[in-house]
């Protein structure tokens, strides 16, 4: 199944990509997905970020769904 990944701010800059689509297996948790993402982009292990699924911060045990929008959010700086 396909998921969409969005990268913001410092993460987008470090990875030189703002968004991409990935095909992943069924019943993958966010924790498992993140592990494979760090394998693809090793620099992520040195960066600080939170992850939102479908625009809400999500616990790592969340199971991904077809079409999930996964966003890597570096520290906030609004205001």
């Amino acid at each position: 199944m396909k998921v969409k990944i969005l990268y913001f701010g410092l993460i987008e800059e470090a990875l030189a990509v703002s968004n991409e689509e990935m095909t992943i297996g069924e019943q993958i948790s966010l924790a498992e997905f993140t592990t494979s993402l760090v394998r693809k982009y090793p620099i992520l292990s040195q960066l600080n970020y939170q992850i939102a699924i479908d625009k809400k911060l999500a616990p790592t045990k969340t199971v991904l769904k077809e079409g999930s929008e996964i966003a890597l959010l570096p520290p906030f700086a609004g205001g």
């Binding site: 913001f8 701010g9 410092l10 800059e13 939102a52 966003a71 959010l73 570096p74 520290p75 906030f76 700086a77 609004g78 205001g79």
Partner: peptide, 24 residues
């Protein structure tokens, strides 16, 4: 709440075109 919860990111730009990322 805005400072803590809004997913807004800020790049602090310097006059020499370098930058750092701001953190609340």
């Amino acid at each position: 709440q805005i400072k803590k919860e809004a997913p807004v990111f800020g790049k602090e730009l310097f006059e020499d075109n370098t930058h750092v990322w701001k953190v609340n």
